[in-house]
C-alpha cells in the first residue's frame, strides 16, 4: 500500500473512533443509490452526525467504564 493510503486509513480510523463515518463514502453512496437527492456539505454532515451520536439517539453514547 502506498503511504498516502496508510495516512488516509489512519485519518479514517481517527474519525471512526469519535463516531464520524466517511463523508466521501456517504457522498458516493448517495450518488449511486439516490441520484438527485440534495446532499449536505461536509460541515453540515458532521454537524448532523454529532447530533445523532450524542443527542437523543437511543443507546448511541454507550461507552464503557
Amino acid at each position: 500500500m502506498p503511504i498516502s493510503l496508510y495516512w488516509q486509513r489512519l485519518a479514517q480510523m481517527a474519525r471512526a473512533m469519535i463516531g464520524f463515518p466517511d463523508y466521501a463514502g456517504y457522498v458516493a453512496h448517495c450518488r449511486l443509490h439516490h441520484p438527485g437527492r440534495s446532499l449536505p456539505g461536509e460541515a453540515e454532515f458532521l454537524r448532523q452526525r454529532q447530533e445523532a451520536r450524542y443527542g437523543g439517539g437511543r443507546g448511541r453514547t454507550v461507552r464503557c467504564c
Binding site: P21, Y26, A28, R49
Partner: peptide, 9 residues
C-alpha cells in the same frame, strides 16, 4: 447500507 449508521467499514 445508508452511508450513515450502516456502513461497511
Amino acid at each position: 447500507n445508508d452511508g450513515l449508521d450502516y456502513v461497511p467499514t
